[in-house]
């Protein structure tokens, strides 16, 4: 977290636009985003529903391609990468936490958590060990064999957080991770993100709730596909 301006920013967006086409209808969800995020930052992206927050996160996570502009992740231009390279980037550098949890219902918790390690090519025994350790970190040591259907929403999201941190990625992207949770579970998940931030990870948290955003060290406010405000904690209240 120290000397962050000496390191290259982990995320660099220049002139990024995203236009959705469905049939003859076009909709510009992002209308020119220019920003950078340094390694170790904890950034909250806030904005009303439909403002383009998820669209932005999908681009940051290399889940989708911008229509225009450039995205450099850790200094590398993502738009020039092949499918296989993108898969590796997602696998090695990024951990995702989705609003819908996105767990595989047929697999027990630890098998869900080990999935990124499977694609990283790690041997089976080591995978299991690390998946169970990750579940321990989110407080689910006693739930490793349960399938998602046997867990509460908050527990499911903690499994998802364990899956996001199991590869020790530099960047964690969370799209409204507490959107489907009650206040108790929300606090649990946000505490986990705080911990991850404290251990040096870069976190981008998307939310439309200001009290959730209050945990972050920086707030990007987005509206109609544009960043309208960029506040750092302590600089602006």
């Amino acid at each position: 977290m120290t000397a962050s301006h000496l390191d290259p920013p982990i995320i660099e967006l220049t002139g990024v636009r995203k236009t959705y086409r469905s049939g003859s209808i076009e909709f510009e969800a992002l209308r020119g985003i220019d920003t950078g995020i340094d390694a170790g930052e904890y950034v909250a992206v806030i904005g009303p529903s439909g403002s383009g927050k998820s669209t932005l996160m999908n681009l940051l996570g290399c889940l989708d391609n911008p229509t225009e502009g450039h995205y450099r992740l850790a200094g590398e231009d993502v738009s020039e990468m092949s499918e296989a390279q993108l898969a590796e980037v997602r696998n090695r550098r990024i951990g995702f936490v989705f609003q819908q949890f996105n767990l595989l219902a047929s697999l027990p918790a630890w098998r869900n958590v080990e999935l990124p390690l499977v694609y990283a090519g790690m041997p089976r025994a080591e995978r299991r060990e690390r998946a169970i350790a990750a579940l321990g970190r989110v407080g689910l040591s006693d739930r490793t064999e349960n399938r998602p259907g046997e867990l509460s929403g908050g527990q499911q999201q903690r499994v998802a957080v364990a899956r996001a941190l199991v590869t020790e990625p530099a960047l964690i992207l969370a799209d409204e991770p507490t959107g489907n949770l009650d206040s108790g579970s929300t606090a649990d998940v946000l505490d986990l993100l705080d911990e991850l931030h404290a251990s040096g990870r870069t976190i981008v948290l998307i939310t439309h709730e200001h009290d959730v955003a209050a945990r972050a060290s920086r707030r990007l406010i987005i509206s109609d596909g544009r960043i309208t405000s960029d506040e750092r904690a302590g600089v602006t209240p």
Binding site: A87, R90, R92, P116
Partner: peptide
């Protein structure tokens, strides 16, 4: 959806 999730977690099309 499962395919999408696996891809997000690092599975290549292959």
């Amino acid at each position: 959806r499962e395919i999408g999730l696996r891809k997000a977690l690092g599975a290549t099309p292959k």
